[in-house]
Design a protein around this nucleic acid. Structure first.
Lengths: 131, 131
DNA sequence: TCAACCGTATTATATGAGTAATACAGTCGC
DNA sequence: GCGACTGTATTACTCATATAATACGGTTGA
């Protein structure tokens, strides 16, 4: 069963996308594996305190993406393979890195300082680093 | 005059926020300086192909933040000083770095690989790096 | 002075995100 | 079989974003 205990909704991004990315990143990280059972729309929505339709929207997109399989009346399961994971890994990391480097460049930071900041912040959770 | 020639709207974020961040990052980077004149709401909206009200929303927030000064009937100007810029720099960079490290960790990447990716992607614009 | 700007405000409309309530048919284990 | 679950679908509502069309009064420069 796919574990949602570490999932927390945040402001600023649609919840259905947060669910989508949570599944995608879990698949790439290996914490979610092929064949894993997904909680039902109703159960997950109750667990997260959101509407079943919001969960359904995320699951529908994941099914269109070929990452999960749903049959009317039955439970839903992850359908992963090495190719899908590899492809997903590239697209997620590329978007992450490109987004950050673009933002940092617009803020006038050079590469050396960027690397220093990543290095300093990596192990922190809620520290007050000197920027 | 604040230069918006490099500004392009993107999907996924409210346009008024994109304008807000563009000004903020320009102020931190030094490409926008204290006393710089801002284009009028009407002129900028025509230039960007968006609605004047969307520009006004961004400028209103910037004024509440104390980064610009507007007088009814007259033009608007940047009002920056070292303290404001320093404060802005910390908040922007902190949000950037925290966002990225969180995403990469959820994708199962370790620090060494993260630093390698940033280093490899920094000088690229639209390349096809091996991830 | 006065026309051409400027900032500001108001009202209306369209769209997408998210919630809410409900309904229907398929699957599964007892 | 049958009840409890499942996925799926529909309609309606709220809210934020963005657009659109105006309108008002202040500022500026020829």
């Amino acid at each position: 069963m796919v574990d949602f205990s570490s999932f927390k909704t945040e402001a600023g991004m649609p919840i259905y996308l947060q669910i989508l990315y949570f599944i995608e990143r879990g698949a790439v990280a290996g914490t979610i594996a092929d064949g894993d059972e997904l909680p039902s729309r109703r159960v997950l929505s109750a667990l997260l305190g959101i509407n079943p339709n919001t969960v359904q929207k995320a699951f529908r997109l994941l099914e269109e993406e070929g990452l999960i399989e749903s049959r009317s009346g039955a439970k839903s399961f992850m359908t992963l393979n090495a190719d899908k994971i590899s492809q997903l890994r590239v697209s997620l990391l590329t978007a992450d890195i490109r987004g950050l480097t673009g933002a940092l460049k617009r803020t006038g930071i050079d590469k050396a300082e960027a690397l220093r900041l990543i290095d300093a912040f990596w192990d922190e959770e809620a520290g007050d680093e000197e920027v």
